[in-house]
């Protein structure tokens, strides 16, 4: 489990509009990489290209390479559906399936992909819920609707759902932005625990959060409105927050941005 991601010369387009330009970076396995930058700089867009969720939006396309342990995710014979099974994703707003119970939500990925064995399912659900630090809170009401949980519990449910299919990589798109501070803390603790097993990439607006949870940080910025976003630099989080190489990074982090 846990694989390395190499991004090489990635350009991302919405129709003719170039949203992101020339991104190259390496994301290390068993570590947390944070994407930071002002809104509109394309950090979420880059995140979504890592598991080909980007192309769900009509007219979106990419140019360049994304390698998962040397396998090009954008190779012609690569099926995006298979890519997404290998690289899981957690979204900004918790989005449990409203028609499904807690159990079914976690089992959804397996079930929708054809796993029927009851024993395998319940084992996986328990393991995933434990992995997401949610088991003790919900083990007595697994058959209740997932939508009935609190926001923070819902988000952990979504993380459980994502890790239930045993992905290599876990992408998180501002997973705490809709949560209160206590739930945020629970999620951050969880990230700390599961980075032993997964490669984690997290987009966040909260620089303290980036500093708290990540090992490496990538800073994205855009020159001006209407210009494509760019990766300014990526480095160890310690170094990025103390003495970044680029002036722009320093300005942004110290709040002198713009």
């Amino acid at each position: 489990m846990a694989k390395r991601i190499d991004v090489q010369d990635l350009d991302i387009y919405y129709g003719k509009f170039k949203a992101v330009e020339g991104v190259s970076m390496r994301i290390e396995p068993r570590s947390v990489t944070a994407f930071i930058g002002p809104s509109g700089c394309g950090k979420s867009t880059v995140l979504r290209t890592l598991n080909r969720m980007h192309e769900v939006i009509p007219g979106a396309s990419v140019d360049g390479q994304v390698l998962l342990d040397d396998k090009d995710l954008y190779a012609k014979d690569m099926d995006p559906v298979a890519v997404r099974r290998t690289i899981g994703m957690v979204f900004q707003r918790p989005n449990p399936f409203p028609t499904m119970s807690i159990f079914d939500n976690v089992a959804a990925g397996l079930r929708l992909n054809g796993v029927k064995n009851r024993k395998v399912l319940s084992e996986t659900v328990e393991r995933s819920l434990k992995g997401a630090n949610l088991w003790n809170e919900v083990k007595d009401r697994l058959d209740k609707p997932g939508a009935g949980l609190s926001g923070g519990q819902q988000q952990r449910l979504c993380i459980a759902r994502a890790i239930a299919v045993s992905p290599e990589v876990l992408l998180m798109d501002e997973p705490c932005s809709a949560l209160d501070p206590i739930s945020t803390l629970a999620i951050e603790d969880l990230i700390h625990e599961i980075k032993e097993k997964y490669t984690i990439v997290i987009v966040t607006h909260n620089m303290q959060q980036a500093a708290r949870v990540s090992d490496r940080t990538a800073f994205f910025n855009l020159a001006a409105t209407g210009k494509p976003g760019k990766l300014i630099e990526i480095d160890d989080t310690q170094k990025m927050f103390n003495r970044p190489s680029e002036k722009a990074t320093e300005d942004y982090i110290s709040g002198r941005f713009g």
């Binding site: 140019d63 390698l67 396998k71 954008y74 298979a82 099974r85 990925g109 992909n113 299919v165 290599e168």
Partner: peptide, 18 residues
């Protein structure tokens, strides 16, 4: 939708059971 520049496209045989 996607344009491909990569040449390194080895067997995409996935690893996990799902």
């Amino acid at each position: 939708m996607t344009s491909v520049t990569g040449v390194s496209a080895p067997d995409p045989s996935p690893t996990s059971s799902v």
